[in-house]
């Protein structure tokens, strides 16, 4: 059996519903035969009557329902149609869910699914990578799977986790990424741990979500030039597995962080700051960020492709870092 990234998400939701009566799904257009804007829940409403529920266009209300149901003892999975619209639920996620355990001692095991990242033509309100504003708040776990296996296991782990989890799923990967095996049998790494996707001695290249594949694409032409990059997939953005990155930088002496998100603040800035602070003596070149342009995400495909890093720009940045 083979699986795409979106099929792995659907499989994880179905398996969670089948195995745990506390799980239910709540989101816009997810029920009936429609099965969601991206078909992540296609067929699940029929398989699990009464447990896949359509919501009004009310992101704040959806998140509030997730919090309340979690406190009642459920394991709700809240689907936002696009990660961009989760901004409407920002208050519920960061002020309500994320503070709850710390304030009361009672955790909020809610999962928020955020279809994130850019696809050509999506424009400013359907393409954003929102980890910057989600990761700055303590109490919220933020994950961003880059592989089909992680799409499955990290969603299962998110649902099983006692803390609230924002699950950022990359829309471009939905149908572009496929494995030839059952995703539930793919390797399962612990939540909170980064993965070395390619070993290399010359430069540590860190990314997450869709950008991991651009980094892996950049690795081959670089290898032909004699530059071996070590590609790390962060997987979990909050908490951040700084230990794996530091261990790699100790070997390579160089760090590039490639992100589809904006340059100001955010995960790339945090990681570069952390490595500068804790790994300064290992560095042979300044830690470098490769980010999106500091503008909203553009509509036209040509502008869109120029907005964020790609394999060629990553390779060029690696060469500059190695030659520093």
């Amino acid at each position: 059996m083979s699986s795409t990234y979106i099929e792995a998400i659907r499989r994880a939701l179905g398996d969670a519903l089948a195995e745990d009566p506390r799980v239910f799904l709540y989101g816009q257009d997810i029920a009936g035969t429609f099965g969601g804007a991206f078909k992540a829940t296609k067929g699940l409403a029929e398989r699990f009557p009464g447990r896949v529920l359509n919501s009004p266009i009310s992101e704040d209300g959806q998140a509030a329902v997730g919090i309340g149901a979690a406190l009642a003892g459920c394991r709700p999975v809240i689907e936002f149609q696009f990660a961009d619209f989760a901004s409407v639920a920002f208050n519920q996620m960061v002020n309500h869910a994320a503070t709850h355990w710390w304030r009361t001692g009672v955790p909020v095991p809610a999962t928020f699914r955020l279809p994130a990242g850019g696809t050509p033509g999506g424009g400013p309100f359907h393409c954003q990578m929102v980890e910057g504003w989600l990761t700055s708040h303590p109490g919220l776990i933020v994950v961003a799977p880059a592989t089909v296996g992680d799409a499955y296991h990290m969603l299962r782990d998110a649902i099983a986790c006692d803390d609230p989890v924002a699950y950022l799923e990359h829309k471009h990967l939905y149908n572009h990424l496929r494995i030839d095996t059952d995703p539930s049998r793919a390797e399962r790494l612990p939540l909170g741990k980064a993965a070395v996707r390619r070993a290399g001695r010359d430069c540590t290249v860190v990314s997450w979500s869709g950008m991991v594949h651009e980094c892996l694409k950049a690795a081959e032409p670089l290898a032909e030039q004699g530059i071996e990059i070590e590609v790390i997939d962060l997987r979990c953005l909050r908490p951040l597995d700084t230990a794996t990155v530091l261990a790699s930088v100790e070997r390579t002496g160089r760090l590039l962080v490639a992100t589809e998100s904006w340059p100001f603040g955010g995960v790339a800035a945090e990681l570069c700051a952390w490595i500068s602070e804790h790994g300064f003596s290992h560095l042979d070149a300044p830690p470098r960020r490769l980010s999106a342009q500091d503008t909203p995400v553009p509509f036209h495909p040509d502008l869109f492709r120029a907005h964020h890093p790609d394999a060629a720009r990553i390779a060029a940045a690696v060469v500059e870092t190695v030659e520093f």
């Binding site: 009566p21 506390r22 239910f24 709540y26 009464g50 447990r51 529920l53 009310s58 704040d60 209300g61 959806q62 998140a63 509030a64 329902v65 997730g66 919090i67 309340g68 149901a69 979690a70 406190l71 009642a72 003892g73 459920c74 709700p76 208050n91 519920q92 002020n95 309500h96």
Partner: peptide, 17 residues
């Protein structure tokens, strides 16, 4: 207003359970 949807969600959760 944050607790209104939360109470609704709690009641929906009780239904599920």
């Amino acid at each position: 207003g944050s607790t209104i949807g939360t109470v609704a969600g709690w009641l929906m959760g009780l239904r599920q359970l």
